[in-house]
């Protein structure tokens, strides 16, 4: 954590993602309310908060799987939500996401990982070398020809990571990526997240409700409660002295939800 924090130190903090006044209503219920947030290039930003508070919806909107009712999302200064389809696919191809369940395609490991490269029209040679690199990254070299459905839960999620980063997205969204895993696999996945951030310099937003995961991984953290972003700050600051009483209560485990 300290390492990754140090690498950006000294550099000017370049904003990659700029969210302004984002709102979303589902069937009359306001799930996200006036969210504004800047995420800097190369950082790991953790979005924490109790279950059902809107974290997943926020990530899905950022991934352009759903449309916001209000507000703007800018990537490198360009608005990516709403508007024309061409803009959307160009933007979408710079963003990637790992879901809570890995949902691998019913195919070989190799074809799963290669998918993002194939749809980008890369040649076979490039695909092969990039897939190899990514399998090395997640520690599953030699798994190329295994059928995805023969993998264990931890292996599946590692392949999901390889699949999500093989095309080197600028922004990687992680939605509770370790929710269904046992502790030893949680350690492995967190190691992979750190490696991706460090070696590929990928900006990462991770949604989680595990305090320790936030502490272990993130540079900065935001507290999302009932659709509102009530506090953001550097992890060490927020965990030592939260500005908002509700954030403090959540961190120390006093919040009943």
């Amino acid at each position: 954590m300290l390492q990754s924090a140090c690498c950006r130190e000294g550099g000017k903090n370049v904003v990659l993602l700029e969210i302004t006044g984002l709102g979303k209503t589902f069937g009359g219920k306001q799930v996200l309310r006036d969210i504004s947030l800047d995420v800097e290039k190369g950082e790991i930003f953790a979005m924490m908060g109790p279950s059902g508070t809107g974290k997943t919806t926020l990530l899905r909107i950022l991934n352009l799987l759903e449309r916001a009712d209000a507000g703007h999302i800018k990537l490198d200064g360009m608005v990516i939500n709403g508007g024309q389809n061409n803009n959307r696919i160009a933007a979408r191809q710079r963003i990637s996401m790992v879901f809570q369940s890995s949902a691998l395609f019913n195919d070989t490991v190799y074809n799963n990982v290669a998918y993002g490269l194939k749809v980008r029209g890369m040649d076979k040679h490039t695909i092969k070398s990039k897939v190899d690199q990514c399998l090395a990254l997640v520690g599953l070299i030699g798994y190329e020809n295994r059928k995805a459905k023969t993998l264990s839960g931890g292996e599946e999620q590692r392949i999901a990571f390889a699949r999500a980063v093989v095309f080197e997205p600028d922004l990687l969204l992680l939605d509770e990526p370790t929710a269904n895993l046992d502790p030893s696999n949680v350690v492995k996945i967190e190691e992979i997240i750190r490696t991706i951030n460090r070696e590929l310099n990928t900006t990462i937003i991770i949604a989680t409700h595990h305090m320790n995961q936030v502490r272990r991984l993130a540079d900065r953290v935001g507290m999302l409660l009932d659709g509102e972003l009530i506090e953001t700050g550097r992890v060490e600051d927020v965990f030592v002295k939260a500005a908002d009483e509700r954030t403090r209560a959540f961190i120390v485990g006093e919040m009943v939800y």
């Binding site: 979408r92 990637s96 949902a103 395609f105 019913n106 998918y115 993002g116 999500a164």
Partner: peptide
């Protein structure tokens, strides 16, 4: 989730359709 993953990984509508059909 399969459909959304294909979409999220940069697939066009057609790419997603191919994944679902497969």
């Amino acid at each position: 989730a399969i459909r959304e993953n294909a979409y999220s990984l940069g697939g066009s509508h057609r790419d997603v359709a191919v994944v679902v059909l497969k």
